[in-house]
C-alpha cells in the first residue's frame, strides 16, 4: 500500500489551514500497547539502509518506558512512501551512563520517543 499524495498545488487557504492546524500524525490500532509505563525495554540493534527515526546512539540499549504516547503513523515506512503502519509510540528514558558510559553524569537521563518496531521486551 504505497502512500499516494494529491499532487495539487497548495492554495493560500490550504497553507493557512496547515499553518493553523498542522497535520495530525495519529493513527488507529486495534491492539493494546505492548508496554506500560515502568516496563524495561531494549532497543533493537538494526541498521536499515532506508529511513529510520531510531538513532544509532540508542540502539541496543536498556531503557524504561516513561509514558505511552498513543498510536501514530510510522515515519520509518512513511519516509519511503510504503505504508502508514500505525503503531504505539512510547517515551523511553535512558540513563546517561547506559548510553555514554561512566564518564556521563550518574544523575542525567535522555528521553526519546520510540515506536513498537524499535523496541524489544527484556
Amino acid at each position: 500500500m504505497a502512500i499516494e499524495t494529491s499532487n495539487e498545488c497548495m492554495t493560500v487557504a490550504h497553507a493557512q489551514y496547515l499553518l493553523q492546524n498542522g497535520v495530525d500524525c495519529r493513527g488507529v490500532s486495534d491492539d493494546p500497547p505492548q508496554f506500560q509505563a515502568g516496563d524495561r525495554v531494549r532497543t533493537k540493534v538494526m541498521h536499515p539502509i532506508t529511513y529510520t527515526r531510531l538513532p544509532r546512539y540508542v540502539r541496543g540499549k536498556m531503557g524504561t518506558i516513561a509514558k505511552v504516547n498513543g498510536v501514530y503513523v510510522f515515519p520509518d515506512t512513511m519516509g519511503q512512501r510504503l505504508a502508514t503502519k500505525p503503531q504505539y509510540v512510547y517515551n523511553v528514558r535512558f540513563a546517561a551512563q547506559e548510553l555514554w558510559g561512566p564518564d556521563a553524569s550518574p544523575r542525567d537521563c535522555l528521553y526519546i520517543d520510540l515506536f513498537d518496531d524499535h523496541l524489544d521486551a527484556t
Binding site: 500524525c25 527515526r53 531510531l54 538513532p55 504516547n69 501514530y72 503513523v73 515515519p75 509510540v89 517515551n91 546517561a96 553524569s105 544523575r107 542525567d108 537521563c109 535522555l110 528521553y111 526519546i112 520517543d113 520510540l114 515506536f115
Partner: peptide, 15 residues
C-alpha cells in the same frame, strides 16, 4: 549544579 538532574529530550518522532 551536579545534584540537579538534567533531562535531555530528543524530539525524533512527531511529538
Amino acid at each position: 549544579p551536579d545534584e540537579v538532574e538534567i533531562r535531555v529530550w530528543d524530539s525524533n518522532a512527531d511529538l
